Simulated assay, not measured.
Amino acid sequence: MAIVIELDVQLAKRKMKSIELAAAIGITPQNLSILRSGRAKAIRFSTLEAICQHLSCQPGDILRYLDEPANT
């Protein structure tokens, strides 16, 4: 199972840099980088809400679930 972060796609659609988004939603560029790279273990709903509000998108536009087949 894997959750894929597609924040870069949303940023590219809006021609926005991650540092601009980080400043707009009040998190550090480093924390946003961890989220963008998929290395984050969790995300606060308040952060997800701020991202969605600023990018005018839905959580499903940023997060995608991939069901990986089981190894048999």
Rank of each mutant, 00 (worst) to 15 (best):
M1A: 10
M1K: 12
A2C: 12
I3R: 07
V4D: 15
V4S: 14
V4E: 15
V4N: 15
V4P: 08
V4Y: 13
V4T: 14
I5L: 10
E6Y: 10
E6S: 14
L7K: 00
L7T: 05
L7S: 03
D8G: 11
D8M: 10
V9P: 03
V9G: 14
V9R: 15
V9M: 13
Q10D: 03
Q10H: 13
L11S: 00
L11I: 04
L11F: 05
L11Y: 02
A12K: 15
A12R: 15
K13F: 07
R14D: 04
R14K: 14
K15N: 14
K15T: 11
K15V: 06
K15H: 13
M16K: 13
M16Y: 04
M16F: 02
K17T: 09
K17Y: 11
K17I: 04
S18Y: 09
S18R: 15
S18I: 04
S18F: 09
I19M: 12
I19Y: 11
E20W: 04
E20D: 14
E20N: 10
E20V: 08
L21R: 00
L21Q: 01
L21P: 04
A22G: 01
A23Y: 01
A24H: 06
A24L: 10
A24R: 07
A24S: 11
I25A: 07
I25T: 00
I25H: 05
I25Q: 07
G26N: 06
G26M: 07
G26D: 02
I27G: 03
I27D: 04
I27A: 02
I27R: 06
T28P: 08
T28G: 08
T28N: 07
P29C: 05
P29R: 10
Q30P: 08
N31M: 10
N31I: 05
N31V: 00
L32I: 02
L32A: 03
S33H: 07
I34Y: 11
I34H: 06
L35P: 00
L35W: 05
L35R: 09
S37D: 09
S37P: 06
S37E: 08
S37I: 06
G38M: 08
R39Y: 10
R39W: 02
R39H: 14
A40P: 01
K41A: 09
K41P: 05
K41S: 12
A42M: 14
A42E: 13
R44G: 11
R44V: 03
F45P: 07
F45K: 11
S46Y: 05
S46G: 05
T47C: 01
T47V: 07
T47Y: 05
L48R: 00
L48V: 03
E49L: 11
E49I: 09
I51N: 01
I51V: 10
C52R: 00
Q53K: 14
Q53A: 13
H54Y: 13
H54R: 14
L55A: 02
L55H: 01
L55T: 04
S56H: 12
C57Q: 02
Q58G: 05
P59W: 00
G60M: 08
D61V: 06
D61G: 06
D61M: 02
D61I: 06
I62E: 02
I62W: 07
L63I: 12
Y65N: 05
Y65D: 06
Y65W: 15
L66V: 15
L66F: 12
D67F: 12
D67S: 14
E68P: 04
E68G: 09
A70K: 15
N71Y: 13
N71M: 13
T72Y: 14
T72M: 12
T72C: 13
T72F: 15
